[in-house]
Design a protein around this nucleic acid. Structure first.
Length: 427
RNA sequence: GCGGACGUCGCAUAGCCUGGUAUCGCGCCGGAUUUGAAAUCCGGUGGUAUUCGCCGCGGGAGUUCAAAUCUCUCCGUCCGCGCCA
């Protein structure tokens, strides 16, 4: 959510951003109109409260003096004012609620580097890493490999849970765990604190970190308690500082988290989504930075550097893309994606997302830091380190041998008990 | 799950019984003093505002002219018991 002061003092900046995104200005105008109406009602009510408070001060004196006539006179005066205050208060509350409902749907202000484009076709290449593997046989898709090696059981998972759930088995399950530990250690060594978050959150905290539409299409709602299962540990790890005023000396706060991630994936279909590429549950190691606004763009590059170093160490071929206006979403001001080469499919596909959300989440969560001129919103950043299910897909497709076995990345061999190749499961 | 105690500004506390302007301390910021630092002293340190003020004592509701204070309810924390990976 944008700071209300942006609408009051710099609406032209929001309008320019909407032009860049190809959006109409109606919502901006409506927020400004409702804000003015709210402030008017609020001001009028404050003036009346002042009258009431001044009058009420006489009551204590009248009571003490035992002057009942004076007390009755003041009371009737105060009663009239109180009714008006209540009326104005209701008006103010209604305007404020509507103002903020619309304000929450207005997207963040984009960084000037964000390329303009209608959809993912407008994303631009930032850099290319590793060498594209070549095969003297037809490269298989990860879906073929998990089937022939019996590393994933989709039908049985569908039986007990539903489609897009899976049992991960044998050597592939071991590799998944090794990846988690490797990524956590890799990022921890760079000064990030390892944190394991709750995997359910309440509505209020969740509204602070996500797009409202996600409540319909992404998160599972757990009843009767009303919790939402997290779609990524970014959400609890960012919201954990909700309603806090942070000491500047604590910033930046660097966190590496790991958690299961749950996604409803409403509307996801198609050949490209077979196997474990798009699933309802997966594990992700995530990087989070909470920082002073002046430093956030440097930290955005820091997060990308960590990703690049980590994925280079896995020996994989991928590209970094700069996400364009049409592919951005509401929360981030700038976003890099890492897209790994999947030889079985012959495409680069998203494996990492690295975002600077500036003060958009912090405003909604009331996460501030102390300054000499008062408190100001912090900036929040997040980046995948490794989403294990997708990393497994990239490793399987790029490191496959003709017989269907898969070479373990060198950096993970010691965590695999010295195993250099993933062997098939017996059942 | 049962019983009890308790939620007050960044932290820590007083005020609650007996309703009537939010207390003291620490930390932090600014200033004075100092070669510098420490110590000491002075001031400031929740939100909002059309800068008068208004609102704020975990959230919500109620009683009242008036609620941090009384009542109800929800949430959370701590202690004891029970259950338990």
């Amino acid at each position: 959510m944008l700071d209300i002061r942006m609408f009051r003092d710099h609406a032209d900046v929001i309008r320019a951003d909407h032009d860049k995104r190809g959006l109409q200005h109606d919502a901006i105008d409506e927020v400004i109109r409702l804000d003015e109406a709210w402030r008017k009602a609020r001001f009028d009510a404050d003036q009346l409260r002042r009258q009431r408070n001044e009058a009420a001060r006489g009551i204590a004196a009248a009571k003490k003096a035992g002057d009942d006539a004076e007390f009755q006179k003041i009371k009737s005066e105060v009663d009239t004012i109180a009714a008006e205050i209540e009326n104005l208060g209701d008006v103010a509350d209604a305007h404020e609620a509507e103002r903020d409902r619309i304000r929450m749907s207005i997207p963040n202000i984009l960084h000037t580097d964000v390329p303009i484009g209608d959809d993912e076709g407008g994303n631009t290449q930032h850099s290319l890493h590793g060498e594209k593997p070549t095969f003297d046989f037809d490269a298989k898709t990860h879906n073929d490999l998990i089937e022939m090696n019996r590393w994933v059981d989709l039908p049985r998972a569908a039986k007990i849970a539903g489609s897009r759930f899976y049992f991960l088995k044998g050597d592939l399950a071991h590799l998944e765990l090794a990846l988690q530990q490797y990524a956590v250690d890799f990022i921890s060594e760079r000064g990030y604190t390892f944190v394991q978050p709750p995997v359910m959150m309440n509505r209020e905290a969740y509204e602070g970190v996500t797009d409202l539409a996600d409540f319909e299409s992404v998160m599972y709602n757990i009843q009767p308690d009303g919790f939402y299962t997290i779609a990524t540990s970014e959400h609890p790890l960012t919201a954990m500082f909700m309603d806090e005023v942070l000491e500047p000396s604590l910033l930046p706060i660097r966190i590496v988290g790991v958690s299961p991630c749950f996604r409803r994936e409403v509307g996801a279909h198609g050949q490209g989504d077979k196997g474990i590429w798009r699933v309802h549950q997966f594990t992700k190691v995530e990087q989070i930075i909470i920082t002073h606004p002046d430093d956030s763009w440097n930290h955005h590059e820091e997060l990308l550097t960590n990703c690049v170093d980590l994925w280079d160490s896995l020996g994989l071929h991928y590209e970094v893309v700069n996400i364009c206006t049409g592919d951005m979403g509401t929360v981030a001001a700038k976003k890099y994606d890492l897209e790994a080469w999947l030889p079985g499919r012959g495409e680069y596909k998203e494996i990492v997302s690295c975002s600077n959300c500036t003060d958009y989440q912090a405003n909604r969560l009331r996460m501030r830091y102390r300054t000499t001129e008062g408190n100001a919103a912090v900036h929040t950043l997040n980046s995948t380190a490794v989403a294990t299910s997708r990393a497994l897909v990239a490793i399987m497709e790029q490191n496959q041998l003709e017989d269907g076995r898969v070479r373990v990345p060198d950096c993970l061999i010691s965590r695999m008990g010295g195993k250099t190749h993933l062997e098939p499961c017996e059942w």
